[in-house]
Design a protein around this nucleic acid. Sequence first.
DNA 1: ACCTGAACACCGTTCAAGT
DNA 2: ACCTGAACACCGTTCAAGT
Lengths: 187, 187
Amino acid sequence: MRYHRDDVVDRALVVLDAYGLADLTMRRLGGELGVQPSALYHHFPNKQSLLAAVADELLERGRRTPRPSGWDARVEAVCTELREAMLAYRDGAELVATVRAFGLGAGTPYDELVAALTDGDLDPALVPTAARTLLHYVFGHTVDEQTHLQAGSVGAIEDAPREDSDFALGLQIVVDGIRALAGAGSR
Amino acid sequence: MRYHRDDVVDRALVVLDAYGLADLTMRRLGGELGVQPSALYHHFPNKQSLLAAVADELLERGRRTPRPSGWDARVEAVCTELREAMLAYRDGAELVATVRAFGLGAGTPYDELVAALTDGDLDPALVPTAARTLLHYVFGHTVDEQTHLQAGSVGAIEDAPREDSDFALGLQIVVDGIRALAGAGSR
DNA sequence: ACCTGAACACCGTTCAAGT
DNA sequence: ACCTGAACACCGTTCAAGT
């Protein structure tokens, strides 16, 4: 059977969710598709760009488009959506963080945060730093959370609500910090 | 020649700084020591615990002990020291973040932040979240920073001061956010 | 355009055996 | 206590060749 790029990405997400990022190897993915590992190099120049495509698709699937009005509610919506998109797949947070680390893909959340903060009358010189600080929080928290959720397989149901409100609390710290900085400035 | 644990850690830091985390393999480290890779398993049960020991030693070497008084100045001192310790070795931030991700070592900065925040009269229920939020920021920013510094080999001298003040700005956001939360509470 | 088959240059880890 | 030598079960990537 013959595949193209999107089939490979789809199957990679299945393998990721079933076996985790460490087992998402070119050889294993080839095996799942009934194809030699070298065949994947027809679709992607290397594993990094395959992972970037998988991360982008994962984020795409997590999009819930209607955004609230008000810059702070919009910032919170973007961050919450990002977290939930990553939690929806096993090792999703680690995957997206890894892809971001080597400078590929996943630029959409950053751009959305920049747009929201700009609408909030934040000094333009502070916008990129504020946006990146939000992303560092979301990635850091969600990677930790997902690691621990997967570690304690049983009893995860009880921990889930505490994690939700803990995420909201840390997010509130960062957003309040941005508000403090905005207040000290032009407004 | 015969080594013990500390010799192996010392040499691992040399290899890390010279060749980077990706090339810090059991085989390469063995080679640098003039020893079979399997010999390293006499000193460490696996690579993860070797890396944890290397990360701990890296942080140990970065300690500049006198701490300022005032909870916020102390928080900033801990975060700045942590960043500088990681920047002192190639891929230092990635190493420490990786070790932290699989739940080993590097608990000292967290404990110090908890102590500082507790002294700052922050509601004890908020202290762990505030401390982890600070760490997410420091790790996220420093990993990004170190990746980009290493990418643009030339001209890094010009970028350094901008990175310093950018780190301080993001840190101010988080600290101000904590202050806002503290103000809303018991004080 | 999409894939095979074979190879290259690596990994971490185990384990019996040596000193 | 510290190390050797050999093996096991893997990796990502390249490349000539096939359809």
